[in-house]
Amino acid sequence: MKNIQVIDGASNCVYDIFAATDEQFALIFPGETDIAFIDEVYERGNDAQLDAVFSEIWKRPIAKKDANGIHGIIFYRLDCKKQYYPSRKDESAINPDGTLLRVEKKS
């Protein structure tokens, strides 16, 4: 199982975490991606299949205190965030000027 955090554009969003099977996770996050925007998920998939997948995922909430990592993030109604994740990988997030959002620490 992999944990997915949901970030919604609603002002009362509480950033819930849900468990997904490896197969469900791969359907939402293709390849090595770990950032997804719900409109893009549905653009590349079958609506009925995705509705069924999400219906199952929503039945598996994880309390934050019990979560053992976050493996992916789904954004709802936050298209403004797309510019920061062009590769749809969290580790490659960028600033508006194209520089990396996170600076590597040198040991």
Rank of each mutant, 00 (worst) to 15 (best):
Q83D: 09
N68R: 07
A67G: 04
D66K: 14
G69Q: 00
R77S: 08
Q49N: 06
K59L: 15
E56D: 15
I57R: 15
H71G: 01
D51R: 09
I74K: 00
C80E: 06
Y76N: 05
W58T: 12
F54V: 14
A63P: 12
A63N: 09
D79K: 06
F75L: 11
L78F: 01
K59W: 14
S55D: 14
H71P: 12
A67Y: 03
W58R: 12
I57T: 06
I74C: 03
L50A: 10
K81L: 11
A63H: 06
K82R: 12
K81V: 01
I57G: 03
K64E: 05
K82I: 04
D66Y: 08
D79R: 02
Q49R: 09
I73G: 00
Y76K: 08
K64T: 02
D66N: 13
S55V: 14
P61V: 11
D47C: 11
L50C: 07
H71C: 02
W58P: 11
L78C: 02
N68V: 07
C80P: 07
Q49L: 11
K65Q: 02
C80A: 04
C80K: 07
I73A: 01
K65G: 10
L78I: 02
F75A: 02
H71D: 13
D47G: 12
P61M: 10
D51L: 09
L78H: 05
A48H: 08
L78N: 02
F75P: 12
K64N: 03
S55K: 14
A52L: 13
I62P: 10
R77V: 07
G72N: 05
K59I: 11
A63R: 06
N68Y: 02
R60W: 07
L78E: 01
V53Y: 00
R77D: 11
I62Y: 03
D51Q: 09
C80S: 12
Y76P: 10
D79A: 08
K65L: 10
V53W: 02
Q49K: 10
K65A: 13
H71A: 10
G69Y: 00
A67S: 03
Q83Y: 00
Q83A: 04
I73S: 03
D66G: 09
K65R: 09
K64H: 07
I57M: 11
L78P: 04
I62H: 04
K65W: 03
S55G: 15
A67T: 01
E56F: 14
D79H: 04
